[in-house]
């Protein structure tokens, strides 16, 4: 039962991802990406991680998608939002994708203990406690990294702003 459900969800996810990179219309591509991200949230739900699924919906489908929509709308005229596609780069792209897939699949297969059943699903409270005690260092490093990215993007945007006003 679970296997069939997983197969269905995974198939939908892959199809949405394919449409996302394959569609000539940029807006359709973004919306298919949204579908891909939503299907990922469903996968998280099936893996007994409802908190992660909620965050995925809130941040990626709700937030990142909205920002991408903004980006698409601000880039150029909407009438002819077509994606330029170059045939000769396809093989290079395929090679990189295959290499990435191989690395990830290899790491997954060779890591021991991944097929062991999980020790019960963690509640949101446990998750929060673990983040702020056991994994505090990783948590803080990630927040500093994100802060850096945030400040960096503001600096980059401001520089262009100053150029325009002066």
């Amino acid at each position: 039962m679970m296997q069939v459900a997983f197969g269905l969800v995974a198939a939908c996810l892959l199809l949405a991802a394919l449409f996302s990179i394959g569609s000539k219309n940029l807006v359709h591509g973004v919306l298919w990406l949204g579908a891909t991200l939503a299907m990922t949230a469903v996968l998280y739900l099936m893996l007994d991680a409802p908190f992660l699924a909620g965050i995925q919906l809130l941040l990626y489908v709700g937030g990142v998608m909205t920002l991408m929509v903004f980006g698409v709308m601000l880039t150029r005229r909407h009438a002819d939002l077509a994606v330029l596609r170059e045939q000769r780069r396809k093989s290079r792209g395929a090679f990189v994708a295959a290499a990435l897939f191989g690395t990830l699949a290899g790491a997954t297969v060779t890591t021991p203990g991944l097929d062991a059943p999980a020790a019960g699903s963690a509640t949101t409270v446990e998750l929060g406690r673990a983040l702020l005690t056991e994994h505090l260092l990783a948590f803080e490093v990630v927040s500093v990294l994100l802060l850096g990215a945030l400040i960096g993007s503001v600096v980059l945007a401001r520089k262009r702003d100053f150029g325009a006003t002066r």
Partner: peptide, 21 residues
């Protein structure tokens, strides 16, 4: 749900996508 509030916020945030669509 264990994540009730998060669920409401997530779907409330999603509402904007069909509106923009």
């Amino acid at each position: 749900l264990d994540i009730g509030v998060l669920w409401v916020l997530a779907f409330g945030g999603l509402m904007v996508i069909p509106v923009w669509m």
